[in-house]
Design a protein around this nucleic acid. Sequence first.
DNA 1: AACTAAGTGAGAACGATTGTCAAAATCGCC
DNA 2: GGCGATTTTGACAATCGTTCTCACTTAGTT
Lengths: 125, 125
Amino acid sequence: MKRQTWQRAAVREALSARGGFVSAQDLHTALKANGSPIGLATVYRALADLAVDGDADSLQSSDGENLYRACVSAGHHHHLICRSCGRTVEIEADPIEQWAAEVAAANGFRDPRHVVDVFGTCSSC
Amino acid sequence: MKRQTWQRAAVREALSARGGFVSAQDLHTALKANGSPIGLATVYRALADLAVDGDADSLQSSDGENLYRACVSAGHHHHLICRSCGRTVEIEADPIEQWAAEVAAANGFRDPRHVVDVFGTCSSC
DNA sequence: AACTAAGTGAGAACGATTGTCAAAATCGCC
DNA sequence: GGCGATTTTGACAATCGTTCTCACTTAGTT
């Protein structure tokens, strides 16, 4: 069974308070800075759980870190990310979903899944 | 100046011999297995150089490794990757290029770049 | 052949993540 | 409210991929 602990709540809250993508380490540092005695391993575990449950989504930064973000729209979606300030916009990509499925089928691939993220510099940067 | 060494040649060759995506570690192991006394650090450096020069492209696997592949078509393209055997198909994605540019512009993002990769299970797996 | 700057390699260092395991906290039940 | 079984936690060690260090070698030039 899955238990409810203040640590998980804290991670969940800190994550949505941030808005953008954060690394597990950063989140841990932020929590500690706010006086929480939470452990690093716990943050990792909580984030992994959130990602599995669909309450957060994750992506890898270009330097190999796992970044997490509180998921606003629960469904499948993609991101437009500012490479300078990290601001993130969730985007719908219906044409891409279809295209991915078609391309996969055309090459005999089953059970297609895809990674689609767009990076750019936002208007305020 | 950039010098030509047998090590770089070996990496380049081993990479295209493989066909699909390989991790730096695997490539190093393969080279050693073939009797080459090449060092691991050198393989990393050579791969990074190849990627910068556009002779190879790289992506991150789901478990955080950097994978490299000899680039057949020099231009911009994407990949369809079998999650089971690693077989890779290079795919054109003209509609996506356009879509990415549009979405970026619509949200005030400049200089858009994107990551598009499709994973699936190929017909022979 | 000699010179010089770039490249190499063994191993140390590093940073992110995961595993370990005893102690602490939660939930279901009385 | 108290109890017990079981999950979760947290400090720290371990792991894994990658990068750094630095003395040594080598390509390319003169």
